[in-house]
Design a protein around this nucleic acid. Structure first.
Lengths: 223, 223
DNA sequence: CAGGGTTATGAACATCGTTCAAAAAAAGCT
DNA sequence: AGCTTTTTTTGAACGATGTTCATAACCCTG
């Protein structure tokens, strides 16, 4: 999940170079955290690093790559937060279904709190779109697919009979639904849930969806 | 819902000017539809309009205002599509609950189809963020709040006992949830629902949520 | 057609990301 | 140490971009 440097450049990477790269990523992270993706400027980075603009392009191919590197760090923290929430979900004194619901609710709320605490960095994960011709590097795709496991696992506990493929789709749907409530809500869009009610509404929707899904499965999966 | 021109400039607006403005908006719409918000460039607009760059700024204050004007048109079409879907939802031979569920499902699917058919323009509605210091013009906020009525009305039929404030929050939550599934799905993000399954998953989630909500209300609203 | 107000023009400015010839630094070598 | 070769860093320069504004063109009215 952590950033692994490209082996080709790694070979001739001195200690110094690696440190500079880390400093660059840290500066970029601070810039994005402070002012969103739009605040990531080559000249500003050079100023905080105390080097010339051109130096940046010896450490990194693009500013795009830099965004991806920062995104990788953000994803790692998010992954940890979701995993902790799932592990810490308390289902004591409840049947299996209720325990599973609580796990899903805990993961959703952890996602909400992460997004709220690190809004700018979190948003950067989704605002960013690679230029259509350039493909995402492999390490970046690996980062992202790890996320939805934290929804899929509790979902397997909730709906033991569901075949894994359908479950995968459902996990993605639930993840995206919660994401949507947060994305619009934290943006202050007018169609959105006001920030004060975000966590409560997410919990409500997650519980309702779980309940409906269990009921549907109980009477036989139609489609 | 339609664009009303600013009365101040309206006073001295000739026929010709209004036409140019319309042409500008049309060109901007085409540009965004073709290449997203990033493809809206002042010089390109001037080229397609056959005028100088400076002329644009006599018709419109900013490119931001232009984005808002295009957004207003998009919202009008979206509003019409959702209204039609709600009106056309067929609940024949079903009880009231099932009829309401079908209305909500129809609205959600209409949203999905609109987003799919006009992805770039639809995305522009949400990608765009006004500079923090400048406030949204009044006509733009009026456009947006009209949207969620198409969720709120069927929801009132589904849950007659729910008080309007809570219902409003729920309508916003459901809207945002469906939006999230679409937003991630149409972007091809990795945590997202694959495009081929978008409509089916949206229908599934909407139905499950409805079912869960009705069940919860039946046994008494706790919180 | 002369004068005055309105509108269009496009060169100019500031700000981006990115490049690249040249300078500086480091490393190798005798 | 001194010279050569390789590597790294530099920052001016390039091409886009949104926006402005003195100037020119236009249009209407008297």
């Amino acid at each position: 999940m952590f950033i692994t440097l490209d082996p080709i450049s790694m070979a001739k990477d001195t200690q110094r170079r690696t440190e500079q790269r880390a400093a660059l990523i840290a500066a970029a992270e601070a810039a994005i955290a402070g002012g969103g993706l739009g605040a990531l400027k080559a000249r500003d980075l050079a100023a905080t690093l105390g080097c010339a603009v051109g130096a940046i392009y010896t450490l990194v191919a693009d500013l795009d790559e830099l965004v991806l590197l920062v995104g990788s760090r953000t994803l790692a923290r998010l992954d940890a937060a979701l995993a902790a929430a799932d592990a810490g979900a308390d289902g004591a004194g409840t049947d299996g279904t209720e325990a599973a619901v609580r796990r899903l609710e805990a993961v959703a709320l952890a996602y909400a709190r992460f997004a709220h605490a690190e809004t700018a960095l979190w948003r950067a994960l989704f605002e960013f779109r690679m230029a259509p011709e350039k493909a995402l590097p492999d390490w970046s795709v690996a980062d992202q697919i790890g996320l939805f496991v934290h929804v899929d696992a509790p979902l397997a506990a909730l709906l033991p009979g569901l075949d894994p493929e359908r479950r995968g789709l459902l996990a993605r749907s639930l993840f995206s639904a919660v994401h949507g409530i947060l994305a619009l809500g934290l943006e202050g869009k007018l169609v959105a849930v006001p920030q004060a009610h975000l966590e409560a509404q997410i919990a409500l929707v997650v519980r309702a969806a779980c309940r409906g899904l269990v009921a549907e499965q109980a009477e036989g999966p139609p489609s």
